[in-house]
């Protein structure tokens, strides 16, 4: 059946980037204020789901040729790696390090290894959500 979803498709092309930008904002905002990897990940996967709704699965997997299960694994590796890095310095597992750096444009920026951990969470959340949706949506 051919449906007329031109409005949805056109709108998606614009809104998609807004959502992803917002999710990145939320991800970094999680550093000191509400937000973080989990919410950011959910927003990003929301964007991808919107893409799935507007187009079909084949198109989306052509645009984003990602193996989501591998994405979960990469995310887990990030999270574990950040935690296990503490083992090298003989401090308790998951101990984080942070410091302030003066970057050219951004100015005084606080860098924190917890961000890497959160990146892992982000990837895991996107991976898990998309795996589930793909599994259910696969045989329509």
């Amino acid at each position: 059946m051919k449906t007329n979803d031109i409005i949805l498709q056109t709108a998606t092309k614009v809104v998609l980037f807004l959502i992803i930008l917002f999710s990145i904002h939320i991800f970094f905002a999680g550093h000191y204020t509400p937000g973080g990897g989990f919410v950011g990940g959910l927003l990003t996967s929301g964007a991808i789901v919107l893409l799935l709704l507007a187009f079909d699965m084949k198109t989306v997997s052509k645009i984003l040729p990602v193996n989501y299960i591998h994405m979960i694994a990469v995310g887990l590796l990030f999270a574990i790696g950040t935690g296990a890095g503490a083992l090298l310095f003989n401090v308790p597992f998951l101990t984080h390090a942070f410091g302030h750096v003066d970057l050219p444009i951004l100015g005084d920026t606080s860098l924190h290894t917890a961000t890497l951990f959160d990146l892992g969470v982000f990837l895991v959340v996107v991976g898990v959500t998309m795996t589930i949706i793909q599994t259910i949506g696969e045989d329509e």
């Binding site: 299960i69 979960i72 694994a73 887990l76 590796l77 296990a84 083992l87 003989n90 597992f93």
Partner: peptide
């Protein structure tokens, strides 16, 4: 090494992740 007791948890975890690949 103070992290010794976490190793029996950490090793299967890393292994499990690697096995996904």
């Amino acid at each position: 090494m103070i992290n010794f007791l976490i190793l029996p948890i950490l090793i299967p975890l890393v292994t499990g992740v690697l096995l996904i690949f």
